[in-house]
Each structure stands twice: as C-alpha cells, then as structure tokens.
Design a protein around this nucleic acid. Structure first.
Lengths: 204, 204
DNA sequence: GAAAGTTTGTGAATGTGAACACAAGTGCAA
DNA sequence: TTGCACTTGTGTTCACATTCACAAACTTTC
C-alpha cells in the first residue's frame, strides 16, 4: 500500500464508502464500479477513484472493484481491522441513543462501558451496556478502551475528559457544545447539533 | 453590508462566534477583541477578522468589537433575526434529546411540533412539545415551519421527508444514515454519528 | 481476433480556504 | 501633542481539495 499524505476530506469519505459496501455485500453484490459507489454515497465517480488512488490501485479497468477486497482495504486504512473499544459518559437521552445504536459492530467498534452520575441509572442496562458510577472513571484504564463518547451536560464535560485522557483514551467524540482542552495527540471530533441547526436558515 | 461571495467555512463558524458572544454578554462583557473571541472558539484571531471582513467593517482598531452590535450583525447574516419554526419527526431517544435541548431559543429557533408513529407516544409532551401522529404530517403546512429535524429510523426517512418537502419545508437536519433525495433548492445537513466515530481510529 | 464499449488511474488545471504580514486606526499616558 | 501599545482590515502567499480530461487496461460481441 502506498503511503502518500492522505487528504482529510478523503478520510472523511472512506466510512461512507464502507457503509455503501456493506449494503452491497448484503445484497450479494460482489463487484462495484466507481460510478455505482458514487451514486450510493452522493459524490462524483472521479472523486471515488481519486480517493482510492491515494492508497494504491484497488480496481480493474473495465470491471470495477471487488466488494469484499475493497471493504478489507478501507477497514485497514481506517484502522478498523482490529476491534476498538469505546466508553460512553452521560446516559441521558442522547447517550441512550448512542448506546442503542446497533450499527457499530460492523466497524469493529464496541461500546464496552457507560458511565453516569445519577444513582438511579447506575446498575441499569441500556443497549446491552451496564451503566456504572461516573466516580469510577479511573477503571477505564483496565478496560483498554481507546475511544470515548461524551454526552454529558456541557458544564461537566471537561471534568470527565481529564480523567479519561489520563487513563489512555486517544480519541473523543464530543457532543457537548464546549471546547475540550486536551493534549495535542488526543483527537477530538465535535458534534454540535445546535450549531448545525443554526446555520440552516442561511441557506434557505 | 457588503455582499461578496461568502466562504462556506466562514458561515459554519458564525454560529460558533454567536455562541461565544452570548456567553460574553451574560458575563456583562460589552466589548471583545478578535483575540478574545478566537480563544473561546478555538480558531486563530486573524481567522475571526478575515471572516468578518467578508461582510464589512464591524470593529474599531485598538478597541475591538461591540458585543451587542456584533451579535445583531451575525444574527442578521445567518437569518436568525426573525423566528424560524422547526418540526421534528421521530421521538426516540435521539428525538427526545433534541426536543429537550433548550438552547435553541437564543437563536430564534423554535421546535413547534413533533411527530411519531408510536400510538403510545402520541399526545404526550417532551421538552414542552406535544407529540402528534406522523400520519398527520400534512398539517405542517398550516404551521408555517421552514425547518425539519429527522430522527426516525433510516428505513422510513425518505417516506417522511417527501411530504415535508411538499408542505414547504426548506431546510432539513438529517440524523439518519440515509442519503435523502430532495429538490435542489432544499438544504440538507447530514449528521451521522456512526461515521464520525468510525473515522476516529484513523487519527489515533 | 478486431472493434466497440467499459472502467480505472492519474497528471494537470482550477478553485477555495488557511495562513501570514503589515499598514492604518484608536486609546492612553506623560 | 507625542510616543507607545494595542487592534482591526485586507492584499498576498501558500496549501489543499475539487474537477477535468484522457491514456491505459479490461470485457464483450461479432
């Protein structure tokens, strides 16, 4: 596999390709053209080919790409070839929604633990994951989790992130509207529902 | 106000500036420098100034920007100066989370109705919004709503979007992982939690 | 096996946004 | 008033991403 510098935007599209490939595999499709794939994802065919070209030659001219092999390649690129463990902090409506989302296993992602401050929730199970006391966040270290999903109220976001960073969490999906302060090598992806809704009126 | 072509990325940052400004106003701050603002939002100071420069001259050299006036300007640019009505379809965990989110009013956004297919939920109230029968989606027309939030299971997403488009919805916040097919003039913003989590391992 | 029809891979052109550097405006203190 | 510290606005440069165009590789058909 070639290792040129990969555009960020390309990486962002790879999971979309992957999802389309899963769908095609389910339908028994074994080969797919860039045109096919592009229509599923909503980009242009040459965009698909250009994206793949950063990694090497995946397809055969006149034929297309082999679904299973392409799937494996993208999984490898995204480091989804081995299981990645995640923890979730804050089991409100939003946290429960994420826990109940069953689509993660395909991507080798598993939420292995959830934490909340509410004593009434501790011990209960949501989406097959038992809720633990947020005071025991340190125990995450023993679980070998590398990812964290933060769905707590904004005021306590930084307070739960600090211990997570200390016990080895490397990537954070932040649903609060607060900017998290973390060391440089920690990756944070912010999802801010309010901001997304607020920018809609401009375009209509 | 000047009307050059505004970069998309600039528009995406404006709501972030707005939120920071709300925070500052609450703390009684009346003036703010680009440096100040940039630290709250997590961008560089020149990025803030450059963004504003697309619209005209908002600040005074040596002093900074007047919080209240800047707030109004950004609201106007984003078309948040008049109330925008939104409906939500699909009151599962995720839908309930959005309904319970109280931060929208600051942006003049109001969720005026929610819809679900579950007869047990219809008639109940979540976040101050009554849940109606999804079969009555047509009634949205009378409500003068322009925005919609889609938090239904992916399989029925397109089925609820089609009638919404017919009754005048112009902007859609789509939480399903399905690509929605809508007329060109309808704006769709996709939020895909699974994809965001799946791209994290690459960076860690 | 030759011709026609597909589809890939990629160099080059175009477009867009980030980053920089600095002139010019403002407030303040002496 | 003068000098200094501070801040804005923006022309320019640079980096990255999209778009195009087309040669090369492959399949199918006759």
């Amino acid at each position: 596999m070639r290792y040129a510098r990969i555009p960020d935007q390309t990486i962002r599209r790879l999971p979309l390709y992957l999802r389309a490939l899963f769908l095609m595999a389910e339908q028994g499709q074994t080969e797919v053209s860039s045109k096919d794939l592009s229509e599923h994802v909503g980009v242009h065919a040459w965009q698909v080919r250009k994206d793949f070209s950063f990694f090497g030659e995946f397809g055969r001219p006149g034929v297309g790409y082999q679904v299973s092999w392409l799937t494996d390649q993208i999984k490898t690129i995204l480091r989804l070839d081995s299981e990645k463990k995640a923890v979730l902090v804050g089991v409100g409506n939003l946290g429960a929604a994420v826990l109940s989302f069953s689509g993660f296993n395909k991507y080798n992602l598993t939420i292995i633990a959830a934490f909340d401050a509410d004593v009434n929730k501790i011990g209960q199970t949501v989406g097959g994951v038992e809720i633990r006391d947020v005071a025991c966040l340190d125990s995450v270290g023993e679980l070998n989790a590398t990812l964290a999903v933060i769905t707590v109220p904004g005021q306590v976001a930084q307070a739960v992130v600090d211990p997570l960073v200390n016990v080895g969490i490397r990537g954070i999906l932040n649903f609060t509207s607060c900017r998290l302060i973390v060391p440089d090598q920690i990756r944070v992806t912010n999802i801010d529902i309010g901001m997304d809704l607020a920018s809609l009126p401009y375009y209509i």
